[in-house]
């Protein structure tokens, strides 16, 4: 995908490819780990976990920035189902590698990264514009939205 941006990114984060590819889009960021099964309604791509800061918010079409996956082993299957429902994220950045998040990213087939030089959860906020080049191991961040 050709970059649609002109201004230089505010932050560049380097990390390891989980699933290759390039994607641009808006960040949906949380400092809380995410449960798949029982924590997400896959038909809407919406977080439903009680007390979660993203409760009621959909990740459909967004780049999900989160510390990691937690909870049921149904994590990958729930995110996989969100893909069937047309409600999956378009990219993922997670700090902690777990089998749940890794397998979820694989079956979603969306550009995904982990093992960063600086923590994206600390530096990316909802609404920031991101460009992930997972093969190059690079995330570009434009604060406050599309430049």
């Amino acid at each position: 995908m050709a970059t649609t941006t002109t201004r230089k990114p505010d932050i560049v984060i380097r990390g390891r490819k989980v699933v290759g590819g390039v994607v641009e889009g808006e960040a949906l960021a949380t400092k809380q780990t995410i449960s798949g099964w029982g924590g997400v309604n896959p038909m809407k791509g919406e977080v439903i976990e009680s007390r979660h800061e993203l409760r009621g918010v959909s990740f459909a079409g967004k780049i999900l920035v989160f510390p990691g996956a937690k909870g049921s082993s149904g994590w990958s299957a729930v995110f996989h189902t969100s893909k069937l429902a047309g409600a999956s994220p378009i990219g993922m950045l997670f700090t902690i590698t777990t089998t749940k998040a890794a397998l979820g990213a694989v079956v979603l087939r969306i550009p995904s990264m982990t093992d960063f030089d600086i923590d994206p959860v600390e530096h990316i906020e909802t609404g920031d514009w991101l460009r992930i080049d997972a093969d190059a191991g690079e995330v570009q961040v434009w604060k406050g939205g599309k430049p």
Binding site: S72, S73, G74, W75, S76, A77, T99
Partner: peptide, 25 residues
């Protein structure tokens, strides 16, 4: 193994070795 409650039982109580696998794996 899938099923988080079975995974934690397998690793902790039995000493079997499994990650929390998913449906596809």
């Amino acid at each position: 193994w899938m099923e988080s409650s079975a995974v934690v039982f397998c690793n902790s109580v039995i000493g079997g070795r499994t990650n929390c696998e998913g449906r596809e794996s």
